[in-house]
Every structure is written in C-alpha cells, then in structure tokens.
Design a protein around this nucleic acid. Structure first.
Lengths: 217, 217
DNA sequence: TTTGATCTCCGCCTTAAGGCGGAGACGGAA
DNA sequence: TTCCGTCTCCGCCTTAAGGCGGAGATCAAA
C-alpha cells in the first residue's frame, strides 16, 4: 500500500477542476483519484473511492456541498472510515461556513487561496489538523454571538408587516393589504423596530432585503 | 506580427486562473499574455498588454468585473483599440448579466462551461461574434422591456445619496457622511424621488437594494 | 459671454412616522 | 379559572420627511 494522499475533487466549474487537478498532479504526495461535477456525483464517488481528502465546492446544482458533506460524513461514520472534507468556496459565500462545518466539513478554504496553501491544507487534513482560512474565525465568532437572527423573535403578524415594509409600502398601504387599521400597523411596526433594534422603517426595509425576507424577487 | 489570440485572464480565484491558463496554453492559436487577480489589476494589465480577448470574472474584491469592464471599454474607446471582454461567472450571478453587457462586455459564459466551449468563445470573440450562454438570452429579453434603468439619470451626488438611503441612513446621517447640510440632503432626496418616480425613502431603499446599488455587502 | 447643469443652502408648510400609554377580544397553557 | 401572548384599536404628542419656491456659486459647453 502506497501512502500518497488520495484526493477527490467535487466542483461544478470545469475550469476549477482542471486547475486543481493539474496543479495537484505535480505534487508527489498527492494523487487525484477522481473528479465530480456536482454533489450527487461527489457522494457516489466518495463512497466508491474512499479518498483521504475531498475538496468540495459549496454552490452546485443537483446537490450542494453542504448536503453532500452531510451525506458523506454520515455514511462514513457508519463504516468507520473517515474522509476529511475541505470546503472550497468564494468569499461571497462565507455565510455558509457554519452550516458547512456543522455538516461535518473539516477545513475551510477560499478559492482565492494560492495553490500551495491548498496543498498545505490537504497535507494538514491528512494529519488530522484542520485549516480555517479567511474571515472564517471572525465569522464563527460573530455568529456564535448572534446565534438566533433577530427576526426569529417576531410574531407571525409582525413578520408580515416586516415583509410589506421590505417592499417599500407605507403604513396605509400595509393596512389595506392586511385588512387592518393603520393604528394596528403602527403598533406592529413599533414592535418590529424594537425587536430588531432599528430606528426607522427604512432600516427595516434594508434589513428585510438583505435577509431576503421579501418573498418576491 | 504573429496572429495568435492574445488573452488576458482576470479572476481572483487562483485555481481558476491556473486551470484556464493551463488549458489555453495547449491551444496553438491562443496565447495567455497575462493574469490579474482583481479588477484593478485587470484594468492596468489590459491597458498595458492590449489583449484581443479578456476573460473576466464578475465577483472580485478591490474592483468587480463590471466596473473593470466599464473602465476598460471606456479607455479603449478613446484610443481606438478594442478588446473583446468575455464575462465568466457562476450561474448564481446571472442577475448581473445585463449590467455587465451594459458595461461593454462582449460575451457571457458560465464557469460550468466546458473548456472547449471557452476556447470556441474566445475564437468567436476574436472574429467579432459574441457568445451568450445560459439563460442569458431569456434574461436579456426580460430586461429589454425595462429600457434604461431610471437611476442612470441621477447625478453623481444624487447617486451617493441614493446609496446612503440604501444603507438605511436618515437625512441627518447622510448629511454627516457627505459633509453637507441636511437641507441639501433633502434637496437631493427630493430629486432622487422624482427621478425614480418613487414616493418615499423606504421605496428608494428597496430600489437601491434590489439593484445592488449599496456598494457594501 | 451666455447658458445650462450641478451643488449648495434657506424658509414655510403639510403629513407620515413613531413613541407612549391604555385597552378590549381571543385562545391556549398552566 | 387565571394568566399570558397576540392581534386589534384608540388618543396624544414630537419629529423626520418631503413638497414648493427661491437663490448664490461654480464650471464646462456653446
């Protein structure tokens, strides 16, 4: 049995797979045993190939990286095998760091990482040491504080009002769409403002749009 | 003078650059003359190298692909030179297709494209034929109805005010960040409202966020 | 030079927004 | 039953927002 690190690449961007496998092939200790172009394929190949390390993209159609990670770790835990999964992603998707780690990811790297950093992360992963790159540490800290998104505390009605504000409606317009009085809308708005710790409806509108709480678009 | 196609790659993902340049180098007719890791660098290298074709990623820090595209086409139009810019992006960012084409992009490809498709698009671009992949055709149809975005008519200052409203700021806060009086802010806000045909700042905030005019995030 | 666009600021006025406090109705949990 | 959360609505009050009209300064184009 030779002790090269068996690596599986899961990414729907052909050029990313190409780049990675081209570079990793130049490394003596690394052996790219497979490439998958979506999460579903990734899970199948992981189970079949049992790689030591899996480089996993997050955003993919068919099945995303988080689901795939979850499936792989669950399956392997039942068969006493352990593939280290390294999440590879763009900086834009950093809000998915925590879910990914929860799903069983071992390391986290940004796609902007230099090739040698990726190699290092693969070797470290093989040795049982995880790598968390980028603002991940900060993000983890920030998220541990937040825990629950503030709008989770809103009542059903308050959430409806929030959504309407997110569409840019006035109290009068909201009153009409929800078939209630303007005074009532005002009450809900006040509650929303205090629960979200915001000062005015404009900030609420921004909040709603940032958190994609407008149900349209 | 040899007639190989001079290509510049602009992408902040090292592995994408690696993959592309590795593959394109195997093509006789193509010559990768440079790689840039962000929009700013991309603009500089474009001006310096005058490539025939530029492969441009959209999402980058420092300067995104749209701004870079705009700068490059503007600069080149003044010096009667013409680089064809091919936007390369993930399917998630398809809402940025139109802004990219408006900015002067020539073709549009998804990163999931096969390597040979990219080569084909490069050759076509050199011959003056653009390639629009994915749902782009449909998106263009849908958007062509819209005409010009209303916010194009805003002055520079009004646009700044618009952005601040998009962050949820009050007139007082905007006045402070822009170092002008509240009265002046009000004037700008009034102009923004009438130009965008909106009734209040909340709708402006929604508009700004929908059109990704907040420059943060 | 004249003109037009832009940015800056003023006063006056009306109204929507939002805080504060109170309250009745209803339904589920203790 | 009592209690609590939620939804509904009221009045009173203060302030931010926004419309309307006017105006001076600057700068570039005609």
């Amino acid at each position: 049995m030779d002790n090269r690190i068996r690596v599986l690449i899961v990414d729907d961007h052909e050029m990313v797979r190409m780049g990675l496998s081209a570079y990793l092939s130049t490394e003596d200790e690394i052996d790219v045993v497979g490439e998958a172009s979506n999460g579903k394929e990734g899970v199948e190949m992981a189970l079949a190939l049992r790689p030591h390390v899996i480089l996993m993209d997050l955003v993919m159609d068919e099945m995303n990286g988080i689901e795939a990670t979850k499936l792989i770790t669950e399956s392997f835990s039942k068969m006493s095998w352990d593939s280290k999964i390294i999440i590879l992603t763009s900086f834009i998707e950093e809000d998915k760091v925590m879910p990914a780690l929860d799903a069983g990811a071992f390391s986290y790297l940004l796609k902007t990482s230099k090739a040698e950093d990726i190699v290092r992360a693969i070797k470290k992963a093989r040795e049982g040491e995880s790598t968390l790159e980028g603002k991940v540490g900060q993000v983890m800290l920030a998220n541990s504080r937040k825990k629950t998104a503030k709008h989770e505390t809103l009542t059903e009605r308050e959430m409806e009002v929030l959504k309407e504000i997110g569409k840019g409606k006035t109290n009068k317009e909201i009153a009409e769409t929800l078939f209630i009085g303007v005074k009532t809308v005002k009450t809900h708005v006040s509650n929303v403002l205090s629960k979200l710790e915001l000062e005015d409806r404009t900030k609420v509108a921004v909040y709603a749009n940032k958190h994609h709480l407008t149900d349209d678009m």
